[in-house]
Structure formats: C-alpha cells, structure tokens
Simulated assay, not measured.
Amino acid sequence: KVVWDVEDHLHFLLPPFTLQPLVENAIRHGLMETMEGGTVKISVYRKEENYIISVADDGIGMPDEIIRSVLKENGLSRGVGLINVHRRLKLLYREGLFIESGLDEGTIVYYKIPVEDVRSNEIRTD
C-alpha cells in the first residue's frame, strides 16, 4: 500500500532521481522481507525554512551498521542507491539523508531542501 501525504501549494523541483531510490529501497529492503507486505508513506511538506521529503515504511527496519555505512563519506554497503542519493544531496545542499529506524518498527528516510535554495533558483535570469 502507498500513502501520499503532500502539503498543498508547494512549488519546487526535486533533484532528479532522489525520491525513486528511497521508495524502491523501502519496498525492496523493508517490505518485501515480510509475508504480509506493508505500507510506504511518501510525505512532502514545509517545516520552517526547509521542504522535507520523507519516505517511511512499516517494514523490518534497518540495522544500525547499515545506516552508519550509508551515511559515511566512503560508505560501502548494499544500499548503493541510498549512498548515491546521500552524496548528491550533500553536494547540492550540504546535508544528505537522515535515517531513523527500529528493527521490526520500520524506517523513515528523509532529506531537506532549503527554501532559500529554491528561491535563488527561481530568481535566476540567465
């Protein structure tokens, strides 16, 4: 099951291929491991001076060592898609992915896009 929770009246562009790997990872590693499947919730909202893009699942969770490996500068793990997204976001916004997980409780992976970066892209005239 997929649940969308998108705040009304938000207008900004996502960096290409930053949402899809998060959804794919939630399904492949979080939900396909369970017989009954589960739910993926995709949320987009503004919080203070950031747009938050979040993918949550109610699957098996991620072990701490995998989270640490994904978020390390030169992390090598099975989460190649997450590592690539994390690195790209750090280059663009100085912050990468945030991951919160509990075993058998699911995982939330999210990132922030600063509103100021979106505004500066809208103002360009070149």
Rank of each mutant, 00 (worst) to 15 (best):
L97V: 03
P63E: 14
S54A: 13
D5H: 04
D117Q: 01
H9M: 07
D64T: 11
I60E: 06
I42R: 06
R119D: 08
G37T: 08
E105Q: 15
I108W: 01
R78T: 11
E105N: 14
K47R: 11
V40L: 11
G75L: 04
E73I: 11
R88N: 08
E48I: 07
Q20L: 13
D64M: 15
V6R: 13
N25G: 02
R94S: 13
E105V: 07
R119P: 00
R28C: 04
R78H: 04
P16C: 09
T125Q: 01
E33L: 02
K90Q: 09
L13S: 14
G75F: 13
K112Q: 13
P21W: 10
G96N: 11
D104S: 09
W4S: 09
L22R: 05
F98T: 14
V80G: 05
V109F: 09
Y110Q: 09
I83P: 05
G81P: 03
R124H: 09
L31K: 05
I27M: 08
M35F: 05
E95D: 14
E122W: 07
G102A: 06
K90H: 05
L82S: 02
D58L: 08
M35G: 14
K90S: 02
E49T: 05
N74T: 10
S101V: 00
F98M: 08
V40E: 07
G102S: 12
G38S: 06
I99Q: 04
I67V: 12
I67Q: 03
L71R: 06
N121Y: 11
S120I: 15
G30H: 04
L19D: 00
R46P: 02
W4K: 14
D58K: 07
E95K: 11
V6P: 06
L10A: 00
I67M: 00
N84S: 10
G79H: 13
R87N: 13
S77R: 06
P63M: 01
E24H: 14
Y111M: 05
L89G: 04
S54V: 09
H29A: 13
V23L: 13
D58T: 11
Y111N: 01
T39D: 11
K1S: 15
G106Y: 03
L71W: 05
V40S: 06
K90D: 00
H86C: 03
S43H: 12
G81W: 03
